[in-house]
Design a protein around this nucleic acid. Structure first.
Lengths: 116, 116
DNA sequence: TCCTTGATTAGACAACTGTCTAAACACGAT
DNA sequence: ATCGTGTTTAGACAGTTGTCTAATCAAGGA
């Protein structure tokens, strides 16, 4: 996928060079998916275990099943999670590469950090 | 601010314990702010230097000044950047603590990473 | 085969978002 | 005091989002 992020060895992932327009278009949707409180907690809950059953996720929120299903679909479309049906239940797990990619983007000291 | 994130020493920031509802409400807006391609590039451009002049930021996009100004306001409201007027020009810089907080949330191996 | 239960899809609707133009505000210079 | 330039605010508008209920699909058991 995106190379710049994984080999940003020395420093400044969000520093030089800046994210290109194309990169921004592909990465922003992942941040956007995390930008809803329900979805952020969903990812958190899913990541807390090897995998999570939808039935448990629905039970963790005061929201309808279809609403949770919708949020899971958004997370899946963003590439942050994946799922599989096994018999009656559907299980979700996080895609660690995706989270790592985001973390790498903003995880290192920036030039601003150096000066302030 | 949020303590859990900064002292998440051993591992699993997105792992156990999951993000609380209150935490999600306060953190999600930051991810949401990064969830637009224009804003993601703005943060990237600002972070690439100690600080950036709005005039340069506006010049970097095929968008109107007010639109860039609006996006900068969103980033500021989310706590990701701050700014200061000096004479005619306004300068923006990133708030490294904010980026670090987000990075810490998704930067460590999750239980999913262990199993897959 | 027909229920029952788990999960997703479809459609509706209010609320929010990204963009624009026009207007206003803030400085510095004439 | 007035003008010109940089920046933000106000208001408008099309498009998107989060939520719901109702309907549909999927799998297992009587």
């Amino acid at each position: 996928m995106t190379t710049r992020l994984t080999l940003a060895a020395p420093c400044c992932a969000l520093g030089a060079p800046p994210v290109s327009s194309a990169e921004a278009e592909s990465i922003a949707p992942m941040f956007k998916a995390l930008g809803d409180p329900v979805r952020l907690r969903l990812v958190s809950l899913i990541a807390a275990q090897p995998e999570a059953c939808v039935c448990d996720l629905v039970a963790a929120f005061p929201l309808s099943g279809p609403t949770i299903s919708h949020h899971l679909k958004v997370l899946r479309a963003a590439g942050l999670v994946d799922c599989e049906r096994r018999g009656t239940w559907v299980y979700y797990w996080v895609r660690p590469e995706a989270l790592a990619q985001l973390s790498a983007l903003l995880g290192r000291p920036t030039s601003a950090a150096e000066s302030r």
